[in-house]
Simulated scan of single mutants.
Amino acid sequence: MELVYFLPPILGAFIGYITNVIAVELLFHPKKPVSIFGFKIQGLVPARSREIVERMMDSLSEILTQDDFEFMIDRAIVRAYIESDLAKRIDEIFDKYPLSFIRDIAERSGLVARMSLAISDSIAGVLKDAVAKNIAKNIDLREFVIKKAQEVSDEEIEKIFKKFAKKELRFIELSGAVLGFVIGCMQSLVIYPYLT
Rank of each mutant, 00 (worst) to 15 (best):
residue 111 L to K: 15
residue 75 R to V: 06
residue 52 I to N: 01
residue 71 F to Y: 12
residue 59 S to Q: 12
residue 105 I to S: 05
residue 51 E to C: 04
residue 116 S to H: 07
residue 69 F to K: 01
residue 58 D to W: 05
residue 95 D to R: 13
residue 69 F to H: 05
residue 77 I to S: 03
residue 72 M to W: 01
residue 69 F to M: 06
residue 117 L to Q: 09
residue 99 L to R: 10
residue 101 F to V: 08
residue 128 K to I: 09
residue 66 Q to D: 13
residue 94 F to Y: 13
residue 73 I to G: 01
residue 112 V to L: 14
residue 113 A to T: 14
residue 106 A to S: 13
residue 68 D to E: 06
residue 88 K to R: 15
residue 65 T to D: 09
residue 105 I to P: 14
residue 84 S to A: 03
residue 130 A to M: 15
residue 108 R to W: 12
residue 103 R to G: 12
residue 100 S to W: 13
residue 111 L to D: 10
residue 60 L to V: 06
residue 78 V to C: 05
residue 78 V to G: 07
residue 65 T to K: 14
residue 97 Y to R: 02
residue 118 A to G: 09
residue 118 A to L: 08
residue 128 K to L: 09
residue 133 K to E: 08
residue 109 S to K: 09
residue 135 I to Q: 00
residue 79 R to V: 03
residue 86 L to E: 06
residue 64 L to Y: 10
residue 85 D to V: 05
residue 86 L to M: 12
residue 128 K to Y: 10
residue 82 I to Q: 14
residue 116 S to D: 14
residue 54 E to K: 07
residue 96 K to S: 12
residue 95 D to H: 12
residue 131 V to A: 07
residue 66 Q to E: 15
residue 118 A to N: 09
residue 71 F to L: 09
residue 122 S to F: 02
residue 126 V to C: 03
residue 105 I to C: 05
residue 112 V to K: 14
residue 106 A to G: 10
residue 62 E to T: 08
residue 128 K to A: 11
residue 122 S to G: 05
residue 49 S to Q: 08
residue 95 D to L: 13
residue 106 A to K: 03
residue 100 S to A: 11
residue 96 K to Y: 12
residue 103 R to K: 15
residue 127 L to H: 07
residue 88 K to H: 10
residue 121 D to E: 15
residue 55 R to E: 11
residue 104 D to N: 11
residue 59 S to E: 14
residue 117 L to D: 08
residue 103 R to S: 13
residue 81 Y to R: 02
residue 81 Y to W: 10
residue 127 L to D: 06
residue 81 Y to Q: 01
residue 107 E to W: 11
residue 98 P to Q: 08
residue 62 E to K: 11
residue 89 R to A: 08
residue 112 V to G: 12
residue 123 I to W: 04
residue 66 Q to V: 15
residue 60 L to N: 03
residue 53 V to H: 02
residue 127 L to P: 02
residue 71 F to K: 14
residue 53 V to L: 04
residue 65 T to G: 10
residue 73 I to Y: 01
residue 76 A to T: 10
residue 97 Y to G: 00
residue 73 I to D: 00
residue 79 R to P: 00
residue 117 L to H: 05
residue 119 I to D: 11
residue 90 I to N: 04
residue 73 I to E: 00
residue 74 D to N: 15
residue 59 S to A: 14
residue 121 D to R: 11
residue 67 D to H: 11
residue 125 G to Q: 14
residue 109 S to H: 15
residue 123 I to Y: 06
residue 111 L to T: 14
residue 49 S to E: 06
residue 126 V to E: 15
residue 50 R to A: 12
residue 73 I to S: 03
residue 56 M to C: 03
residue 88 K to N: 11
residue 48 R to L: 07
residue 71 F to H: 11
residue 65 T to C: 03
residue 133 K to I: 07
residue 94 F to E: 05
residue 93 I to E: 03
residue 112 V to M: 14
residue 65 T to S: 15
residue 74 D to Y: 12
residue 102 I to Q: 03
residue 69 F to W: 07
residue 72 M to V: 02
residue 132 A to T: 00
residue 101 F to Y: 12
residue 53 V to K: 00
residue 115 M to G: 12
residue 128 K to W: 07
residue 48 R to E: 05
residue 103 R to E: 15
residue 60 L to W: 04
residue 50 R to Y: 02
residue 78 V to K: 12
residue 77 I to K: 00
residue 79 R to K: 13
residue 94 F to A: 06
residue 98 P to G: 11
residue 95 D to P: 00
residue 61 S to G: 06
residue 73 I to W: 00
residue 64 L to C: 03
residue 99 L to D: 03
residue 130 A to W: 06
residue 135 I to W: 02
residue 96 K to G: 09
residue 108 R to N: 15
residue 67 D to T: 13
residue 93 I to Y: 05
